[in-house]
């Protein structure tokens, strides 16, 4: 089952993937360095499907889309946080990485707690403690993008945009 990785408030995109790696294009290479500055063991230990539990203002800082790409490549299936910074939020949706706003979630989890995320119902279940958190629901069009796996597959499905 998915495990929780708990982080502090104000995790920046520099924390998620440092500037020196932005020259890399291969998502796997980015994934190897995810969270390196603030948790050097994260990228080595994280398993496919694991969930990040963040505090306030998760993803603040630079507009680098390599941040959600690195998290996805590392295996992260969703980020649940008290609140998100704006650009990271958009980028994650565009990359098909669910970013779920859920006030109160940060204090409800400890590292390695078992977690189940239900996007459709909008619930975050801490299986270890039994507590269930209710997330803010996604607007329909965002849910559509997430279901498609990101903005590009979503646009493709709807027919490629035409030039005007």
């Amino acid at each position: 089952m998915a495990r929780a990785w708990v982080f502090e408030d104000d995790v920046s995109t520099d924390d998620i993937i440092a500037g020196r790696y932005l020259i890399k294009h291969d998502p796997r290479e980015l994934g190897i360095h995810a969270m390196e500055n603030i948790n050097p063991i994260f990228a080595k230990r994280v398993k496919r499907g694991d969930v990040i539990i963040g505090g306030k203002n998760f993803g603040c800082g630079s507009s680098r889309e390599q941040a959600p790409i690195a998290l996805k490549a590392a295996g992260v299936s969703a980020v649940v946080a008290e609140s998100f910074a704006r650009i990271f939020y958009r980028n994650s949706i565009n990359q098909g990485l669910p970013v779920i706003t859920c006030p109160g979630v940060r204090s409800g989890f400890k590292n390695m707690h078992k977690v189940k995320v239900d996007l459709k119902r909008g619930t975050i279940h801490n299986v270890t403690t039994g507590k269930v958190f209710k997330a803010e629901p996604f607007p329909d069009f965002i849910l559509g993008i997430l279901r498609a796996g990101g903005l590009i597959p979503y646009l493709k499905r709807r027919g490629a945009p035409r030039r005007r």
Binding site: E65, I87, R90, N91, Q95, L155, P161
Partner: peptide, 28 residues
């Protein structure tokens, strides 16, 4: 780029986005 808000110094609405959003703008 996140610091695109700099241009607001000249009275415009300037904001930063990521690469996929930029691709959508490039396209449409």
């Amino acid at each position: 780029d996140s610091h695109s808000c700099t241009y607001g110094a000249l009275g415009c609405f300037a904001t930063g986005v990521g690469s996929t959003d930029m691709a959508a703008i490039f396209a449409t």
